[in-house]
């Protein structure tokens, strides 16, 4: 995987989160949690967009592989706001995996 693949993957999750956010009323407490998680992911995607680093290192590849596995697990589940507890938990898992990846390449971002 490349840096661009990761940026795109995060983008896919963000657009799914937006579908979930837009399906809840603005003052719904679950909506606020979704908003917060979106802000976190947006910030990470922006940092990855600005960063220049070697995405062929083993460290990056291992972290990206883990992120891909999480993404495969949660794919298609984020828009299901009728199962909001699972949705929030899945997004948190994904955000954690992104944070781990960024920690792995820490000095560059």
């Amino acid at each position: 995987m490349t840096r661009l693949d990761v940026i795109k993957m995060i983008g896919d999750v963000i657009t799914d989160i937006d579908v979930a956010r837009g399906s809840l009323l603005p003052d719904d407490p679950n909506r606020h949690q979704l908003d917060d998680l979106r802000i976190l992911l947006d910030d990470r995607q922006r940092k990855l967009s600005k960063a220049a680093f070697d995405d062929t290192t083993q460290q990056f590849q291992d972290s990206a592989k883990k992120l891909q596995a999480v993404n495969d697990q949660i794919r298609g589940s984020i828009q299901q706001v009728n199962k909001i507890v699972t949705v929030l938990s899945n997004i948190k898992t994904f955000v954690d995996a992104v944070t781990s990846l960024m920690t792995a390449i820490g000095p560059f971002v």
Binding site: L4, I7, K8, G11, I14, T15, D18, R21, G22, L25, P26, R38, D42, Q45, R46, S49
Partner: peptide
């Protein structure tokens, strides 16, 4: 590609802002 992804992100956020305005 980065520009496209960030624009996608922005347009996606704008969709929610418009829906919120209506709601």
């Amino acid at each position: 590609t980065v520009a496209y992804e960030r624009r996608r992100n922005g347009l996606s956020a704008a969709r929610v802002i418009l829906v919120d305005q209506y709601n």
